[in-house]
Amino acid sequence: MNKITQLFNIKYPIIQGGMIWNSGYKLASAVSNAGGLGLIGAGSMYPDVLREHIRKCKAATDKPFGVNVPMLYPNIEEIIQIIIEEGVKIVFTSAGNPKTWTGHLKANGITVVHVVSSSKFALKAQEAGVDAVVAEGFEAGGHNGREETTTLTLIPMVKEQISIPLIAAGGIATGKGMLAAMVLGADGVQMGSRFVASFESSAHDNFKNTVLSVKEGDTQVTLKELAPVRLIKNKFYQDLQELYAKCPTVEELKSLLGRARAKRGMFEGDLIEGELEIGQIAGLIHEVKSVEAIVQEVISEFDEVKNSFRQSFF
């Protein structure tokens, strides 16, 4: 057992990213049943929907699972209360100050992990009392760090600063990537994009199939004035670039973004006007598979490459 498998009482140190519109109870329970840690993505759920997904997840797995909570979303107080009432034991927080809720969650017997994009915020999370941090590199899909630090440099820098367990995220979808992250100092990995392209993901099939077609250079981080987000370059992305050419105000950017564009793209399958969030690693994802197959493939490759090092280099 390593620090992460021990902390969460799981078989493999693989955590599924709690992505909006992709991470319902079916995905979370499947990852947990496969030996990792599944996360329900609360960011795209109204409080009553979250409660329903937690209950369905409990019915679908007897293994540990958690909830990912972006703290800048509305209804945060109600969401936290539901998590406590429903007996969820693991919470991943992001997009906010970890001091706000960590103490309250831990007082209710919940293990707390915070997602960061820099060593500075990793230290703040540790000071706030979290049990572990996820250090997410700039390669990641969805909302991203402003510092633009890549996983390869971020992980060892964060490792040097903190004493609590460290989970690497951003650009990891294979056993080789997992091994590389752990060699750099991570105790486990969080994978988002790889699990988007799974049968159990709640993403629309149109989006899943588009992920399979993504090549190197087909994603870009944009909307830094609002909240940096990595998107596939579709019509909506091109419309954004045309607006940027006119030096828009923040209000003009907000107006073009509108409401529910991420739901439109990833959940409803509008590949033209929707917001399609995925990581750079999508260029290595070529097939939609079951969660069980994905986890076993990652672990098999991890073990194979780790065992081959002695023969290859020494």
Rank of each mutant, 00 (worst) to 15 (best):
N75A: 11
M157C: 04
E252L: 01
C57S: 10
V113I: 15
E148G: 00
E52M: 13
N33E: 14
E200Q: 13
G137I: 09
I281D: 05
T174P: 08
P248C: 07
Y46F: 15
Q311C: 00
W101Y: 15
I155P: 09
T153I: 12
G188L: 12
T100P: 00
I281A: 02
Q220K: 15
I285D: 05
K246W: 05
K263N: 10
W21C: 01
L271D: 07
K224L: 10
I299S: 10
G96E: 05
P248W: 03
R230D: 01
G41M: 03
R194T: 02
G109H: 09
N144E: 00
H204M: 04
L253E: 11
P156R: 01
G185D: 12
Y25H: 15
E292R: 13
A245P: 00
F207P: 00
S198V: 07
E216K: 11
S213H: 03
I285Q: 10
S300N: 13
Q220R: 12
K176Q: 10
M266W: 11
H143A: 08
A203K: 09
S198M: 05
C57G: 01
V116C: 13
I281E: 12
Y12D: 06
K89Q: 10
L154W: 05
A140V: 13
I167R: 08
Y244E: 13
I20L: 06
A59D: 11
F207Q: 02
M19K: 05
I84W: 07
A227M: 14
H53T: 04
V88I: 08
M45I: 06
E147M: 11
K56R: 14
I54R: 03
P165F: 08
E52F: 04
T150K: 06
L256R: 12
K99C: 11
K246D: 01
I90F: 13
L212A: 02
A122L: 09
G137D: 07
I4W: 00
S201D: 04
F8W: 12
S213P: 00
S300W: 03
